[in-house]
Protein backbone atom coordinates (compact mmCIF):
# COMPACT_ATOMS: atom_id res chain seq x y z
CA UNK A 1 0.00 0.00 0.00
CA UNK A 2 1.38 3.36 -0.99
CA UNK A 3 1.98 5.92 1.69
CA UNK A 4 -0.43 8.77 1.63
CA UNK A 5 1.54 11.96 2.23
CA UNK A 6 -1.61 13.67 3.58
CA UNK A 7 -2.29 11.00 6.20
CA UNK A 8 -1.65 12.28 9.73
CA UNK A 9 1.41 10.95 11.44
CA UNK A 10 0.51 8.08 13.76
CA UNK A 11 -0.06 9.28 17.30
CA UNK A 12 2.82 8.41 19.56
CA UNK A 13 2.06 7.58 23.17
CA UNK A 14 4.32 7.59 26.18
CA UNK A 15 3.78 5.79 29.46
CA UNK A 16 2.98 8.03 32.41
CA UNK A 17 1.60 5.59 34.97
CA UNK A 18 2.18 1.95 35.72
CA UNK A 19 -0.69 -0.38 36.55
CA UNK A 20 0.23 -0.07 40.24
CA UNK A 21 -0.19 3.69 40.24
CA UNK A 22 -3.47 3.49 38.33
CA UNK A 23 -4.87 0.85 40.69
CA UNK A 24 -3.88 2.98 43.68
CA UNK A 25 -5.52 6.04 42.16
CA UNK A 26 -8.83 4.36 41.32
CA UNK A 27 -8.99 2.44 44.60
CA UNK A 28 -8.51 5.70 46.45
CA UNK A 29 -11.00 7.58 44.26
CA UNK A 30 -13.71 4.92 44.60
CA UNK A 31 -13.27 4.64 48.35
CA UNK A 32 -13.29 8.44 48.69
CA UNK A 33 -16.71 8.79 47.09
CA UNK A 34 -18.25 5.84 48.97
CA UNK A 35 -16.87 7.26 52.23
CA UNK A 36 -18.04 10.77 51.38
CA UNK A 37 -21.55 9.61 50.50
CA UNK A 38 -22.00 7.39 53.55
CA UNK A 39 -20.26 9.95 55.76
CA UNK A 40 -22.59 12.74 54.68
CA UNK A 41 -25.61 10.57 55.49
CA UNK A 42 -24.20 10.07 58.98
CA UNK A 43 -23.26 13.75 59.35
CA UNK A 44 -25.99 15.90 57.81
CA UNK A 45 -29.18 15.87 59.91
CA UNK A 46 -31.42 16.29 56.85
CA UNK A 47 -29.83 13.29 55.12
CA UNK A 48 -29.81 11.24 58.33
CA UNK A 49 -33.54 11.80 58.67
CA UNK A 50 -34.30 11.12 54.99
CA UNK A 51 -32.21 7.96 54.66
CA UNK A 52 -32.38 6.41 58.15
CA UNK A 53 -30.76 2.96 58.44
CA UNK A 54 -27.95 4.46 60.47
CA UNK A 55 -26.42 1.16 61.68
CA UNK A 56 -26.15 -0.07 58.08
CA UNK A 57 -24.66 3.22 56.81
CA UNK A 58 -22.24 3.20 59.75
CA UNK A 59 -21.10 -0.32 58.83
CA UNK A 60 -20.66 0.68 55.18
CA UNK A 61 -18.60 3.72 56.20
CA UNK A 62 -16.45 1.79 58.67
CA UNK A 63 -15.77 -1.23 56.47
CA UNK A 64 -15.14 0.87 53.37
CA UNK A 65 -12.49 2.73 55.38
CA UNK A 66 -10.88 -0.49 56.56
CA UNK A 67 -10.99 -2.06 53.06
CA UNK A 68 -9.58 1.13 51.53
CA UNK A 69 -6.59 1.16 53.90
CA UNK A 70 -6.04 -2.58 53.38
CA UNK A 71 -6.22 -2.28 49.60
CA UNK A 72 -3.75 0.63 49.51
CA UNK A 73 -1.25 -1.34 51.60
CA UNK A 74 -1.80 -4.51 49.55
CA UNK A 75 -1.41 -2.84 46.14
CA UNK A 76 1.70 -1.00 47.30
CA UNK A 77 3.20 -4.22 48.67
CA UNK A 78 2.60 -6.55 45.73
CA UNK A 79 2.67 -3.92 42.97
CA UNK A 80 5.52 -2.26 41.12
CA UNK A 81 7.36 -0.92 44.15
CA UNK A 82 10.23 0.46 42.12
CA UNK A 83 7.94 2.62 39.99
CA UNK A 84 6.10 3.71 43.11
CA UNK A 85 9.32 4.70 44.86
CA UNK A 86 10.36 6.69 41.79
CA UNK A 87 7.01 8.48 41.76
CA UNK A 88 7.29 9.33 45.45
CA UNK A 89 10.82 10.65 44.87
CA UNK A 90 9.62 12.87 42.04
CA UNK A 91 6.74 14.22 44.12
CA UNK A 92 9.09 14.88 47.03
CA UNK A 93 11.46 17.11 45.07
CA UNK A 94 10.59 20.70 44.23
CA UNK A 95 13.21 22.37 42.05
CA UNK A 96 13.56 25.98 40.98
CA UNK A 97 11.14 25.54 38.07
CA UNK A 98 8.56 24.03 40.41
CA UNK A 99 8.78 26.99 42.74
CA UNK A 100 8.55 29.36 39.78
CA UNK A 101 5.45 27.46 38.57
CA UNK A 102 3.82 27.83 41.98
CA UNK A 103 4.70 31.52 42.01
CA UNK A 104 2.44 31.91 39.00
CA UNK A 105 4.80 31.33 36.07
CA UNK A 106 2.84 28.63 34.25
CA UNK A 107 5.51 28.48 31.53
CA UNK A 108 8.16 27.14 33.88
CA UNK A 109 9.08 23.75 32.39
CA UNK A 110 7.70 20.85 34.41
CA UNK A 111 8.67 17.21 34.76
CA UNK A 112 6.25 14.24 34.81
CA UNK A 113 4.26 16.02 37.53
CA UNK A 114 3.81 19.75 37.65
CA UNK A 115 4.19 21.44 41.02
CA UNK A 116 0.43 21.72 41.51
CA UNK A 117 0.00 18.00 40.93
CA UNK A 118 2.74 17.35 43.48
CA UNK A 119 0.94 19.44 46.08
CA UNK A 120 -2.33 17.65 45.32
CA UNK A 121 -0.62 14.30 45.84
CA UNK A 122 1.03 15.41 49.10
CA UNK A 123 -2.21 16.80 50.54
CA UNK A 124 -4.13 13.72 49.45
CA UNK A 125 -1.63 11.45 51.20
CA UNK A 126 -1.57 13.54 54.39
CA UNK A 127 -5.36 13.84 54.47
CA UNK A 128 -5.77 10.11 53.89
CA UNK A 129 -3.51 9.35 56.85
CA UNK A 130 -5.38 11.86 59.04
CA UNK A 131 -8.80 10.57 57.94
CA UNK A 132 -7.69 7.07 58.94
CA UNK A 133 -6.30 8.12 62.33
CA UNK A 134 -9.28 10.32 63.26
CA UNK A 135 -11.75 7.76 61.91
CA UNK A 136 -10.25 4.96 64.00
CA UNK A 137 -10.27 7.26 67.03
CA UNK A 138 -13.94 8.11 66.45
CA UNK A 139 -14.77 4.44 66.30
CA UNK A 140 -12.58 3.28 69.17
CA UNK A 141 -13.03 6.34 71.36
CA UNK A 142 -16.74 5.59 71.71
CA UNK A 143 -15.82 2.45 73.60
CA UNK A 144 -12.61 3.31 75.39
CA UNK A 145 -12.68 6.74 76.99
CA UNK A 146 -8.88 7.02 76.95
CA UNK A 147 -9.02 7.57 73.18
CA UNK A 148 -11.84 10.12 73.27
CA UNK A 149 -9.95 13.25 72.21
CA UNK A 150 -11.70 16.60 72.12
CA UNK A 151 -10.69 17.45 68.54
CA UNK A 152 -11.41 14.17 66.74
CA UNK A 153 -14.84 15.13 65.40
CA UNK A 154 -13.58 18.60 64.42
CA UNK A 155 -10.59 17.16 62.55
CA UNK A 156 -12.61 14.53 60.67
CA UNK A 157 -15.20 17.17 59.64
CA UNK A 158 -12.61 19.75 58.61
CA UNK A 159 -10.74 17.20 56.49
CA UNK A 160 -14.03 16.42 54.75
CA UNK A 161 -14.70 20.08 53.88
CA UNK A 162 -11.13 20.66 52.65
CA UNK A 163 -11.17 17.42 50.64
CA UNK A 164 -14.33 18.45 48.81
CA UNK A 165 -12.61 21.68 47.72
CA UNK A 166 -9.47 19.85 46.60
CA UNK A 167 -11.39 17.11 44.78
CA UNK A 168 -13.57 19.71 43.04
CA UNK A 169 -10.43 21.39 41.72
CA UNK A 170 -8.96 18.01 40.75
CA UNK A 171 -12.15 17.04 38.87
CA UNK A 172 -12.22 20.39 37.07
CA UNK A 173 -8.62 20.01 35.90
CA UNK A 174 -8.98 16.36 34.89
CA UNK A 175 -12.42 16.48 33.24
CA UNK A 176 -13.04 20.03 32.01
CA UNK A 177 -9.93 22.23 31.71
CA UNK A 178 -8.85 21.81 28.04
CA UNK A 179 -5.08 21.75 28.46
CA UNK A 180 -4.99 19.29 31.38
CA UNK A 181 -7.92 16.95 30.79
CA UNK A 182 -5.84 14.68 28.52
CA UNK A 183 -4.18 13.51 31.76
CA UNK A 184 -7.32 11.47 32.46
CA UNK A 185 -6.16 9.10 29.72
CA UNK A 186 -2.86 8.65 31.53
CA UNK A 187 -4.40 7.63 34.84
CA UNK A 188 -6.93 5.37 33.08
CA UNK A 189 -4.94 3.65 30.30
CA UNK A 190 -1.45 4.49 31.52
CA UNK A 191 -0.29 6.37 28.43
CA UNK A 192 -0.55 9.94 27.15
CA UNK A 193 0.15 11.56 23.78
CA UNK A 194 3.86 12.30 23.33
CA UNK A 195 3.16 15.78 21.94
CA UNK A 196 0.96 16.63 24.94
CA UNK A 197 3.66 15.39 27.30
CA UNK A 198 6.28 17.47 25.54
CA UNK A 199 4.16 20.60 25.68
CA UNK A 200 3.00 20.37 29.29
CA UNK A 201 5.78 18.31 30.89
CA UNK A 202 8.83 19.50 28.96
CA UNK A 203 11.40 18.20 31.43
CA UNK A 204 9.92 14.71 31.40
CA UNK A 205 11.81 12.42 29.03
CA UNK A 206 9.75 9.26 28.77
CA UNK A 207 10.43 6.43 26.38
CA UNK A 208 7.86 6.07 23.60
CA UNK A 209 5.51 3.11 23.92
CA UNK A 210 5.94 0.88 20.86
CA UNK A 211 2.27 -0.01 20.92
CA UNK A 212 -0.56 1.22 23.01
CA UNK A 213 -1.70 -2.11 24.32
CA UNK A 214 -1.69 -3.87 27.64
CA UNK A 215 1.79 -5.47 28.12
CA UNK A 216 0.70 -9.13 28.38
CA UNK A 217 -1.40 -8.70 25.24
CA UNK A 218 1.52 -7.03 23.51
CA UNK A 219 3.83 -9.89 24.48
CA UNK A 220 1.29 -12.37 23.18
CA UNK A 221 0.94 -10.53 19.88
CA UNK A 222 4.69 -10.17 19.32
CA UNK A 223 5.69 -13.72 20.26
CA UNK A 224 7.38 -15.71 17.51
Amino acid sequence: MATNPDAPAPTVYVRRFTLTERLLHWTHATAFFVLLGSGLVLYLPSLSIAVGRRPLIKDIHFWTGISWAGAIVLISAVGNRRALAATIREIDLFDRDDRSFLAGNSRAPQARFNAGQKINAILTAAFAALFLVSGLLLWYGEQDTTYRLSGTVYLHDTLMYLSIVIVAGHLYLSLIHPTTRHALRGITLGTVRADWAKQHHAKWKPAAEPEDVYPPVRRYLTRT
Partner: peptide, 16 residues
Protein backbone atom coordinates in the same frame (compact mmCIF):
# COMPACT_ATOMS: atom_id res chain seq x y z
CA UNK B 1 3.68 -7.02 37.71
CA UNK B 2 6.26 -6.18 35.06
CA UNK B 3 8.61 -3.32 35.65
CA UNK B 4 7.36 -0.64 33.33
CA UNK B 5 9.31 2.36 32.27
CA UNK B 6 7.98 5.40 33.98
CA UNK B 7 11.01 7.08 35.39
CA UNK B 8 12.15 10.19 33.62
CA UNK B 9 15.74 10.23 32.63
CA UNK B 10 17.67 12.59 34.77
CA UNK B 11 19.95 14.07 32.17
CA UNK B 12 18.60 17.54 31.52
CA UNK B 13 20.82 20.16 33.16
CA UNK B 14 17.75 22.05 34.37
CA UNK B 15 16.48 18.93 36.06
CA UNK B 16 16.40 19.24 39.83
Amino acid sequence: MPAERSQPERESPREN
